[in-house]
Write a protein that binds this DNA or RNA. Structure first.
Length: 232
DNA sequence: GCGACAG
DNA sequence: ATCTTGTCGC
Protein backbone atom coordinates (compact mmCIF):
# COMPACT_ATOMS: atom_id res chain seq x y z
CA UNK A 1 0.00 0.00 0.00
CA UNK A 2 1.29 3.44 -0.90
CA UNK A 3 2.32 5.95 1.81
CA UNK A 4 -0.60 8.29 1.11
CA UNK A 5 -3.13 5.54 1.81
CA UNK A 6 -1.41 4.57 5.05
CA UNK A 7 -1.24 8.19 6.19
CA UNK A 8 -4.88 8.88 5.44
CA UNK A 9 -5.80 5.51 6.96
CA UNK A 10 -4.05 6.38 10.22
CA UNK A 11 -5.90 9.69 10.38
CA UNK A 12 -9.24 8.03 9.70
CA UNK A 13 -8.58 5.40 12.35
CA UNK A 14 -7.66 8.08 14.90
CA UNK A 15 -10.79 10.06 14.08
CA UNK A 16 -12.94 6.95 14.51
CA UNK A 17 -11.72 6.39 18.06
CA UNK A 18 -13.86 7.93 20.82
CA UNK A 19 -12.30 11.04 22.34
CA UNK A 20 -11.99 11.25 26.15
CA UNK A 21 -14.40 13.52 27.98
CA UNK A 22 -12.62 13.60 31.33
CA UNK A 23 -9.08 14.18 32.54
CA UNK A 24 -9.00 10.70 34.08
CA UNK A 25 -9.92 9.10 30.76
CA UNK A 26 -7.33 11.25 28.99
CA UNK A 27 -4.65 10.22 31.46
CA UNK A 28 -5.42 6.55 30.85
CA UNK A 29 -5.02 7.08 27.11
CA UNK A 30 -1.65 8.76 27.67
CA UNK A 31 -0.50 5.93 29.88
CA UNK A 32 -1.60 3.37 27.32
CA UNK A 33 -0.25 5.03 24.17
CA UNK A 34 3.08 6.17 25.58
CA UNK A 35 4.54 2.68 25.14
CA UNK A 36 4.23 3.14 21.39
CA UNK A 37 6.63 6.07 21.26
CA UNK A 38 9.79 5.20 19.32
CA UNK A 39 12.80 7.14 20.55
CA UNK A 40 15.23 6.31 17.73
CA UNK A 41 15.51 7.63 14.20
CA UNK A 42 12.95 5.87 12.02
CA UNK A 43 13.38 7.76 8.76
CA UNK A 44 16.02 8.61 6.18
CA UNK A 45 15.17 11.07 3.43
CA UNK A 46 13.30 14.24 4.31
CA UNK A 47 11.68 16.00 1.40
CA UNK A 48 8.73 17.57 3.22
CA UNK A 49 8.74 19.10 6.71
CA UNK A 50 5.45 20.21 8.25
CA UNK A 51 4.56 22.63 11.02
CA UNK A 52 1.28 22.41 12.92
CA UNK A 53 -0.42 24.91 15.19
CA UNK A 54 -3.85 25.95 16.40
CA UNK A 55 -5.59 29.21 17.07
CA UNK A 56 -9.02 30.08 18.45
CA UNK A 57 -12.02 32.07 17.30
CA UNK A 58 -15.33 33.19 18.73
CA UNK A 59 -14.00 33.49 22.28
CA UNK A 60 -12.37 30.02 22.19
CA UNK A 61 -15.53 28.27 21.05
CA UNK A 62 -13.91 27.39 17.72
CA UNK A 63 -10.55 25.67 17.36
CA UNK A 64 -8.75 26.48 14.13
CA UNK A 65 -5.93 24.14 13.13
CA UNK A 66 -3.30 24.90 10.52
CA UNK A 67 -0.69 22.77 8.79
CA UNK A 68 2.13 24.16 6.66
CA UNK A 69 4.16 21.76 4.52
CA UNK A 70 7.56 23.06 3.43
CA UNK A 71 10.03 21.56 0.99
CA UNK A 72 13.41 20.71 2.47
CA UNK A 73 16.03 22.17 2.31
CA UNK A 74 14.64 25.19 0.48
CA UNK A 75 11.98 25.71 3.17
CA UNK A 76 9.54 27.04 0.59
CA UNK A 77 5.83 26.56 1.24
CA UNK A 78 4.44 23.62 -0.71
CA UNK A 79 0.96 23.27 0.72
CA UNK A 80 -1.21 24.50 3.56
CA UNK A 81 -4.44 23.27 5.12
CA UNK A 82 -6.91 24.71 7.62
CA UNK A 83 -9.72 23.12 9.64
CA UNK A 84 -12.23 24.58 12.08
CA UNK A 85 -14.18 22.56 14.65
CA UNK A 86 -15.99 23.36 17.90
CA UNK A 87 -13.67 23.35 20.93
CA UNK A 88 -14.41 20.33 23.11
CA UNK A 89 -11.62 20.06 25.68
CA UNK A 90 -10.33 22.77 28.08
CA UNK A 91 -6.70 23.74 28.36
CA UNK A 92 -5.18 21.78 31.24
CA UNK A 93 -1.38 21.66 31.60
CA UNK A 94 -0.33 18.10 30.77
CA UNK A 95 -3.37 17.49 28.55
CA UNK A 96 -2.89 19.96 25.73
CA UNK A 97 -3.04 17.30 23.01
CA UNK A 98 -6.65 16.45 23.83
CA UNK A 99 -7.61 20.07 23.10
CA UNK A 100 -5.67 20.48 19.87
CA UNK A 101 -5.34 17.12 18.11
CA UNK A 102 -8.94 16.68 16.88
CA UNK A 103 -8.70 19.86 14.82
CA UNK A 104 -5.16 19.06 13.69
CA UNK A 105 -6.24 15.66 12.35
CA UNK A 106 -8.93 17.29 10.25
CA UNK A 107 -6.45 19.73 8.78
CA UNK A 108 -3.90 16.98 8.11
CA UNK A 109 -6.61 14.96 6.40
CA UNK A 110 -6.87 17.63 3.73
CA UNK A 111 -3.22 17.38 2.70
CA UNK A 112 -2.13 16.03 -0.66
CA UNK A 113 1.51 16.04 0.43
CA UNK A 114 2.59 13.61 3.14
CA UNK A 115 5.12 15.11 5.57
CA UNK A 116 8.28 13.14 6.32
CA UNK A 117 8.70 15.02 9.60
CA UNK A 118 6.37 17.15 11.72
CA UNK A 119 7.35 19.97 14.09
CA UNK A 120 4.71 20.45 16.77
CA UNK A 121 3.98 23.55 18.82
CA UNK A 122 4.43 22.16 22.36
CA UNK A 123 6.31 19.47 24.25
CA UNK A 124 6.86 15.87 23.23
CA UNK A 125 8.68 13.61 25.69
CA UNK A 126 9.35 16.52 28.08
CA UNK A 127 6.02 15.86 29.78
CA UNK A 128 4.96 14.57 33.23
CA UNK A 129 3.95 11.22 31.69
CA UNK A 130 6.35 11.47 28.73
CA UNK A 131 3.50 11.90 26.26
CA UNK A 132 3.12 15.50 25.15
CA UNK A 133 1.35 16.55 21.97
CA UNK A 134 4.31 15.75 19.70
CA UNK A 135 4.35 12.15 20.94
CA UNK A 136 0.57 11.85 20.71
CA UNK A 137 0.32 13.19 17.18
CA UNK A 138 3.39 11.27 16.04
CA UNK A 139 2.05 7.96 17.35
CA UNK A 140 -1.45 8.48 15.91
CA UNK A 141 -0.06 9.30 12.46
CA UNK A 142 3.00 7.04 12.75
CA UNK A 143 5.10 9.90 11.39
CA UNK A 144 8.40 11.21 12.83
CA UNK A 145 7.62 14.21 15.07
CA UNK A 146 9.45 16.74 17.23
CA UNK A 147 8.17 18.85 20.12
CA UNK A 148 9.19 22.52 19.84
CA UNK A 149 7.86 24.52 22.78
CA UNK A 150 8.32 28.22 23.50
CA UNK A 151 8.27 27.73 27.26
CA UNK A 152 8.83 25.13 29.94
CA UNK A 153 6.38 22.51 31.17
CA UNK A 154 8.76 20.39 33.26
CA UNK A 155 12.49 19.96 33.76
CA UNK A 156 15.64 21.72 34.92
CA UNK A 157 18.84 22.61 33.11
CA UNK A 158 22.26 24.20 33.37
CA UNK A 159 23.03 27.72 32.21
CA UNK A 160 22.89 28.12 28.44
CA UNK A 161 25.45 29.99 26.32
CA UNK A 162 24.14 32.94 24.29
CA UNK A 163 25.36 31.74 20.90
CA UNK A 164 23.03 30.27 18.32
CA UNK A 165 23.13 26.48 18.28
CA UNK A 166 24.15 26.03 21.90
CA UNK A 167 21.99 23.64 23.90
CA UNK A 168 21.68 21.95 27.28
CA UNK A 169 19.95 18.77 28.37
CA UNK A 170 16.59 19.15 30.08
CA UNK A 171 16.32 16.90 33.12
CA UNK A 172 13.43 15.53 35.14
CA UNK A 173 15.10 14.04 38.21
CA UNK A 174 17.78 11.74 36.78
CA UNK A 175 16.13 11.33 33.40
CA UNK A 176 16.97 13.37 30.33
CA UNK A 177 13.62 14.33 28.81
CA UNK A 178 14.69 16.88 26.22
CA UNK A 179 16.87 19.93 25.66
CA UNK A 180 16.77 23.69 25.61
CA UNK A 181 18.15 25.15 22.41
CA UNK A 182 19.35 28.63 21.54
CA UNK A 183 17.81 28.91 18.07
CA UNK A 184 19.01 32.48 17.68
CA UNK A 185 21.64 34.56 19.52
CA UNK A 186 20.45 36.31 22.68
CA UNK A 187 16.84 35.14 22.64
CA UNK A 188 14.89 32.89 24.98
CA UNK A 189 15.66 29.23 24.26
CA UNK A 190 13.31 26.71 22.66
CA UNK A 191 12.30 23.56 24.55
CA UNK A 192 13.01 20.59 22.30
CA UNK A 193 11.96 17.01 22.89
CA UNK A 194 11.33 13.96 20.79
CA UNK A 195 7.86 13.23 19.57
CA UNK A 196 8.10 9.94 17.69
CA UNK A 197 10.57 7.98 15.56
CA UNK A 198 13.46 10.33 16.23
CA UNK A 199 16.35 10.68 18.70
CA UNK A 200 16.90 13.86 20.69
CA UNK A 201 20.17 14.64 18.92
CA UNK A 202 18.55 14.29 15.51
CA UNK A 203 15.60 16.37 16.66
CA UNK A 204 17.86 19.24 17.74
CA UNK A 205 19.63 19.15 14.38
CA UNK A 206 16.37 19.25 12.44
CA UNK A 207 15.07 22.18 14.44
CA UNK A 208 18.26 24.08 13.62
CA UNK A 209 18.01 23.15 9.95
CA UNK A 210 14.50 24.57 9.89
CA UNK A 211 15.47 27.76 11.73
CA UNK A 212 17.62 29.86 9.37
CA UNK A 213 16.76 33.30 10.70
CA UNK A 214 14.26 33.73 13.51
CA UNK A 215 13.71 32.23 16.95
CA UNK A 216 11.04 29.83 15.72
CA UNK A 217 11.40 27.29 12.89
CA UNK A 218 9.95 28.40 9.55
CA UNK A 219 7.48 25.53 9.77
CA UNK A 220 5.94 26.77 13.01
CA UNK A 221 6.09 30.39 11.93
CA UNK A 222 4.00 29.63 8.88
CA UNK A 223 1.57 27.33 10.71
CA UNK A 224 1.28 30.06 13.35
CA UNK A 225 0.43 32.65 10.77
CA UNK A 226 -2.23 30.49 9.12
CA UNK A 227 -3.79 29.48 12.44
CA UNK A 228 -3.97 33.05 13.71
CA UNK A 229 -5.02 34.81 10.54
CA UNK A 230 -8.49 36.35 10.80
CA UNK A 231 -9.19 35.42 7.21
CA UNK A 232 -8.48 32.04 5.57
C1' DG B 1 -0.80 21.85 51.99
C1' DC B 2 1.76 25.07 48.61
C1' DG B 3 3.44 26.37 44.07
C1' DA B 4 4.19 25.24 38.97
C1' DC B 5 1.84 24.76 34.97
C1' DA B 6 3.10 23.44 26.83
C1' DG B 7 -1.07 26.37 24.33
C1' DA C 1 -3.92 30.81 23.34
C1' DT C 2 -6.06 36.03 22.80
C1' DC C 3 -7.20 41.19 23.51
C1' DT C 4 -3.89 45.32 20.85
C1' DT C 5 -0.26 50.73 19.16
C1' DG C 6 3.29 52.31 19.63
C1' DT C 7 7.81 51.87 20.92
C1' DC C 8 12.54 50.52 22.58
C1' DG C 9 16.81 48.26 20.91
C1' DC C 10 20.23 45.81 17.85
Amino acid sequence: MEPAKIFQGNIQEALNQPWPQTVDAARKIQEQLRSQVIRDDGFSTVQYVAGVDVGFEDNYRITKAAVAVLRYPSLELVERAIARIPTTFPYIPGFLSFREIPALLQALQKLNTIPDLILCDGQGFAHPRRFGIACHLGVLLDVPAIGVAKSRLIGTHEELAAEKGSWQSLWDKEERVGAILRSRANVKPLYISIGHKISLETAINWVLRCTPKYRLPETTRLADRFASAREG
